[in-house]
Each structure stands twice: as C-alpha cells, then as structure tokens.
Design a protein around this nucleic acid. Structure first.
Length: 500
RNA sequence: GGUCCUGUGGCCGAGCGGCUAGGCUCAGCUCUGCAAAAGCUGCUACAGCGGUUCGAAUCCGCUCGGGACCUCCA
C-alpha cells in the first residue's frame, strides 16, 4: 500500500476533511445505523449500505482490524411523530396477523439476502434492539440518575433543555435549540413532556400494544434513539472511531444519540461522523411516501415502469460507486444503462489481465510508460484516500484498463514494461476491482445460459449432419461427451442425455 | 419561516485557485473474411451577472433554478 498519502474523511461534526487516525490502531470501530425491519429494503437503503461496505473494505485493505457493527432495529420506531402512535413493527404485525417477531424475521432475512446480492460483506456484529432491552433500561436509569431524564406516567423522557445548559444539543446538525422550540409544531399527546423537543427514552405500553417489557417504570418499550447509543458503545467502547448512517438521520436520530451518550457518560461517543447522501429520482429523494420507490428485486427483474430492462446486482453496485457517497445519486434507466456498459468493460478487463502474461524480453524499458503505470496506480490510492472517492478511483481504473487492453492487443509491447510494474498493474487492477469496489463476475446472470448454449450446439450438430459433414458431427459428439453428455439421434430429431 | 447543500459538455458524474478526470452516447479512422472487441481521433463544458486575483468551474457578492433537513425515514 501507499503509506505516504493517508486516508482523509469528511467529518460531519467538524465539517472538515480530517486525517483518519484510529483511537486504538490497528483497531477500528465502525457503527452504522441499520434498517428497521418492517418492510422490504428499497434501493435508497441499499445505497447507504453499499457505501459503508466500500469503506469497510478499504479500511480492511489498509490493514486495519475493523469491527463493523450494523444494528437491526426490531422495535421502537414509531409510525407517527410526537412519540405517539404505534410501533412500526407492532402495527405491521397486527395488519398481517403475525407475531411481531415473525415480521422481524421475514424482513431481516430479506434484507440479508439483498445485501448478499450486492456483494456486501456481512458486519462483524449485527445486534438487535430487542436483544438489548436490559442495557437500554440501564442507560435510561443512568440518565435519570444524572438528572437528564424524568419519568411521567410510566414513560421516560430526555430533558433536552436541562442537557443544553451544560452541553450543546444540536451541534452535529447545526440546530439552535431556541429555533427548534419555536418551529416545533403543535402536536397531540405532548402534555407529558416538559418541553416539546424532549424525546422518549422509554414509552409506556398501552393495553393493546403487543411489544412490551417490564421496566422500573412499568411495562413498556424503548424509545427511538436509545438502541444505537447502547449498542454502539457496548460493542465498540466510548469513544469509538466511526459512526455512519444516511444524512436523513443526522437530526434528530444522531443528535439524540450524542445527547444520550454524553448525558450518561459525560463524554463524546464518536470521533468521526460520516453521512451518506440520498438516492434521488428526477432530483427528488426516493421514498415510499413519494411513490417513486423501487425495490432491488424490481431492478433485477426489470419489472418496473421506469425500467427498459433488468439490471444485475453488480451493475447496480457499480452504478452506485460511480458517484461519491456524499453526493446525491440520481437514478434513471439511462444512467443505469451507461453503467452497465462500463461495468462490462471493467469485467472484460479483469478477465484480460488475469490471462495476460508477461513476456520476458530483452526490450528497452519505456520510461514514460513505466512512470505512467506507477502514477495511475498511486492515483487509485489517492482517490480512495480522499474520503473514499470511488468515482476518482474508477476513472483511474479505466485509464489502467486502456493499457491492459493495449498490451493484450499488442498495440503496446508488454516487454517495454518493467516486470515489477507488470505485477503492479495486475495487482492494482484486480485488488481495487474485486476487493475494494467489491465487484465480481456474475456467472449465473442468466440461469438458462447453459441450456441455450447446449441447444445451439445441438442445432449445429443437426445441421452438420444434414450436410453430411461427418467430421464435424463426430467432433461435436466426441467433445460434448467429455462433459458427460450423450447426443442421440432419434426419428424425431436430436436429443441429449446424461452419460450413465 | 429556520438551517444547509447544490446547478459542470447530448446523458451520468469527478474536480476544492494554474496542470482542461472518467464512463455512456455520437462521428471518423486503424485492425478485421464479415462482425464484435480493442486502440486512436474529434465533439472541450462549467446557470447568469458583477468582484477579488498575474490567473477562477474552483474564492466573495447578488440574481435565477434544483434539492435536503427541521416529523418516521438510509
């Protein structure tokens, strides 16, 4: 690796690009807010997790020992605002006449399946909120003890005003507490709170509420933001290195997380806050409520009015990585089509470079050529070191690809390359494409391909037979037998069967 | 209303004060039995108007356009 230029990341809380220095190298702790499993993940969700997968892979490549924690939210997110209304999972469970945990299981499995299709590495730990009720109760109690929370009628709220007297609430998202109080809308069911901006740590369960746990304040369930505060510090300590999530979580979710951790422990929980930007359609954020939402499966099957065809998971992954994680990514069929071509070009390059062999010749090395290869290789690192700038990396990979193809086609003489630079070219291209961008060949892209190829072969066989070209006939029969397949001529035509 | 981001060639997208990424599309050339692939060449853009500077897509101001967050949201 190129140790001279170091990884820099854009830290939301300082609003600056900073040199990345882990708290306890070589260990790196990374926490990413995962999905709420009450429905299928859509493409926007996927983009976020593909982005963090890129970061995870690069950190691993740099030699860090990364513990990557991504939670599964299986309780606690309310359907309505104002800390009122149903739990999303409980609501869905009632609608579908299922146990809440059946909902959780179904969508957790679905989520993992999609993540696997996108070739994301599984996190080191994937903790669930319901698995950490005890710890959440403990943190709530601690916040009460520290004077930053109060209980009312079996619910517990975080006292934002009180907290703000000593610390600064809103520093991550740039909110001013007075403004927040002013703009807070009139909502029902706020009487329990001292102030409208207070948020729930623990909610009393109404009789009809099916997800409930015993607590010092009665039977209830944890509030929205508590699980991340609890689970991140439980598994990564405090402070830990990286906390990520979509930018829509900056406020209030991450803001509340900070308040909870600081309120409980007195110190900042996170060194680097990273936020990924939204996936948009026609410039507008993809979301269920807007109806412009598209699921991974629709993309893979092409079954959507916005799509002219289907796109493979790797094509979509490449499409996502062609834009920097902090920029909005605009979704369109046309853009996807362009990415598909580019991706295939990369794949062909991968195949070419793997088969390309170095010719041991006594040629005079081309200094300019060698220098260019060296420079392009280091530019790949520079791109990634610059806040995980994958588009920059990809541009340089295409530049390297041009050389790979030129060597392959003998437009350029590979002997003009120094042996060490041939190795450099090869390892750089393969490592970045496969290990860091996480792109791979999709052999099973078309599950019928083998059948189709076989049929073509049999048609050729028949045709040769009609021409009485028995040399070809015999050749085909002989070669295909090596694959354990027998060709049989019947009155109805040509058939095949497995060799017994 | 508040806070913030953003406007790049036919399309997508880097760029963070000088060295005019990259992909896709289009046109032409080379190679080729035909074709494909690949290579080469061309199309040279920064919303508008001012300002700072020897020099601005990049910094500042204004105007116009797009968007996000402020409520669950990746």
């Amino acid at each position: 690796m190129n140790s001279e230029n170091k990884l820099c990341v854009y830290n939301t809380i300082t609003r600056k690009k900073e040199l990345f220095e882990p708290i306890n190298p070589p260990f790196v702790g990374m926490y990413v807010c995962g999905p709420t499993v009450y429905g299928d993940a859509h493409l926007g969700n996927c983009r976020t997790f593909v982005s963090y997968d890129l970061m995870y892979r690069y950190l691993l490549h740099l030699g860090y020992r990364v513990r990557y924690v991504r939670n599964i939210t299986d309780v606690g997110h309310l359907v309505n605002d104002a800390d009122e209304g149903d739990d999303k999972i409980a609501k869905k469970a009632r609608m579908e006449k299922l146990e809440p945990m059946e909902i959780v299981q179904r969508y957790t499995l679905g989520f993992r399946d999609v993540m696997q299709k996108f070739n994301t590495l599984p996190p080191s730990i994937e903790p669930t909120a319901t698995g950490h009720i005890l710890e959440q109760i403990e943190m709530t109690q601690k916040l009460i003890d520290n004077g930053y929370a109060y209980s009312v009628n079996g619910s517990v709220y975080f006292d934002v005003i009180k907290y703000n007297q000593k610390f600064q609430y809103g520093k991550l998202s740039g909110r001013v507490i007075e403004e927040l109080i002013k703009t807070e809308r009139d909502l029902d069911g706020q009487e329990e709170k001292k102030n409208t901006i207070d948020f729930a740590l623990w909610k009393l369960a109404k009789p009809e509420h099916i997800m409930r746990w015993t607590s010092p304040w009665g039977k209830g369930f944890p509030g929205w933001h508590l699980e991340c505060s609890v689970m991140s510090t439980k598994y990564l300590g405090s402070p830990f290195d990286i906390h990520g999530g979509g930018m829509d979580l900056k406020f209030p979710h991450h803001e509340c997380e900070i308040a909870q951790n600081v309120g409980a422990e007195g110190s900042e929980p996170v060194k680097y806050w990273l936020h990924t930007n939204m996936l948009t359609v026609g410039g507008q954020r993809m979301g269920k409520s807007l109806g412009n939402y598209i699921s991974p499966d629709q993309l893979f099957t092409g079954d959507h009015k916005m799509l002219s065809k289907s796109y493979s998971p790797m094509t979509v992954r490449f499409f996502m990585l062609q834009t920097h994680y902090a920029s909005t990514l605009d979704f369109s069929d046309e853009a996807l089509k362009a990415s598909e071509k580019g991706f295939r070009k990369i794949l062909n390059g991968l195949k070419t470079i793997k088969e390309l062999s170095y010719q041991e010749k006594q040629d005079i090395f081309d200094e300019a050529l060698n220098k260019d290869i060296e420079q392009l290789s280091s530019l790949c690192y520079e791109g990634m070191n610059d806040d995980f700038n994958s588009p920059k990396l990809i541009a340089n990979l295409f530049n390297l690809l041009k050389y790979i193809n030129s060597f392959h086609n003998k437009v350029l003489n590979i002997g003009a390359l120094k042996p060490e630079n041939f190795i450099l070219l090869k390892t750089t291209f393969i490592t970045f494409v496969e290990n860091i961008l996480g792109l791979k060949e999709e052999k099973n892209n078309n599950p019928n391909m083998l059948d189709d190829v076989l049929k073509t072969l049999l048609d050729t066989y028949s045709e040769a037979k009609n021409r009485k070209d028995y040399a070809t006939v015999d050749l085909i029969r002989k070669e295909i037998k090596k694959q354990g397949i027998l060709i049989k001529d019947t009155k109805e035509g040509v058939e095949w069967s497995y060799e017994e």
